[in-house]
Amino acid sequence: MIALRQLATSLKKVNWQNRLIRQRKNSITIRARGTYVAALDFVLVATLAQKPIASTPAPALGVRWLMSSNSFPRMNWPYVILVALLGTGGLLFIAWSITWQVYREWSNGLPISGGWSWPIVVSVNLVCAFAVSALYWKIYSDAKTTIDEYGIFKPSLFGAHTIAWSEVTNVEVFGGVGYHVHAGNSKIIVTPYAYKNPNQVIEILRINIVRASSDAT
């Protein structure tokens, strides 16, 4: 019995010593990893410190409000949806009224009156469909239009269309509704009243164009 107790005591001591050895190894490994990570951090900081940081000039007064906005300009969706519904309804009514008149006379075996014919009816329907598509494309392009301190961006069927403020050669206003911004042969149409803040859109256009022209001179 005494021998068995001594054997158990010696086994406990061995297990305790093995635990101490493993803890010391883990501690050394953790310290080594910490030293390695610290060295990497030091190298990274030293590398970044050697790279020059490009300074950006402060924005001009006319574009500070513009740059603080998350999205500019913001769409006036109630107005745009109303215009879309009225435009779509009007075009569909034109196509339906002509088509129904011709179909009713043709189905009853009567001569088609009013100078209409099926080729003309098909042409009218195609024109109305094209007009509806153009209306919704206009809404989409207005929603994706961006005005910033560099110029105007607007999507087109042939890719992105951008005009820098320094490239603007002329601005035409049609009834206060459409602003045609020209840069040589390029043109972007801005519709201020499609947005929530039409007066601010007009003012941003004016300020940036005036500022670009004064910088050029």
Rank of each mutant, 00 (worst) to 15 (best):
L91M: 15
N199C: 07
G34V: 01
T99D: 09
Y103W: 08
Y150P: 02
G89S: 08
V210L: 13
R74W: 11
V132T: 02
S69F: 07
K51S: 10
A54P: 13
I2Q: 06
V210C: 07
V177N: 06
K187S: 03
S107M: 04
L135H: 04
V168G: 10
W116V: 09
L205S: 14
A95W: 10
F153D: 04
Q50I: 15
W165Y: 13
V190I: 13
L85Q: 02
A129T: 09
S156T: 03
Q101K: 02
S141C: 05
R64Y: 04
A58N: 10
I21K: 03
T169Q: 08
S27N: 08
V173I: 12
N76P: 08
G89K: 06
G159M: 00
L135T: 04
I202Y: 11
N199W: 09
P78D: 10
N185V: 07
S71V: 14
L66Q: 01
Q6F: 05
S10C: 04
G109V: 09
A143S: 11
Q101M: 01
G115A: 12
N70M: 10
T56K: 12
R64T: 11
S213P: 00
S27I: 05
Q6N: 05
A194N: 11
V124A: 13
R33G: 01
L157S: 01
W165I: 11
L4S: 15
H180W: 08
P119V: 15
N125L: 11
A216C: 08
V122Q: 09
T88S: 07
K154M: 13
K144T: 00
L85V: 07
F174V: 08
P192N: 06
V177G: 01
G175N: 08
T35H: 05
F158P: 00
W116D: 10
S69M: 11
L86D: 01
L126H: 09
V102C: 07
Y140Q: 00
G87V: 02
L4Y: 13
T191H: 01
A58K: 13
V181R: 05
W137I: 01
P155H: 11
I21A: 04
T35K: 10
Q50T: 15
K187D: 01
L91Y: 10
I28T: 08
V63K: 06
F72E: 08
S186A: 12
L85E: 02
L91A: 15
L61H: 02
Y179N: 11
F42L: 10
I81Q: 07
A54S: 14
W165F: 14
A134P: 00
R74N: 13
S117F: 15
W100C: 01
Q6I: 04
R206A: 12
P78Q: 12
A60H: 06
A212D: 05
A194D: 06
F158D: 00
R31W: 07
I189S: 03
N197M: 14
A160N: 02
S107I: 05
N70S: 13
E149M: 03
S69N: 11
I81P: 01
S97V: 04
W96S: 08
T35E: 07
S55D: 08
K144A: 02
V37N: 10
P59D: 03
H180C: 05
P78V: 12
Y140N: 01
K12T: 14
H161K: 15
N70P: 10
R64H: 04
T169V: 07
I188A: 03
K13N: 05
W65T: 05
A54Y: 14
T217C: 03
S71I: 14
L82W: 01
K51C: 13
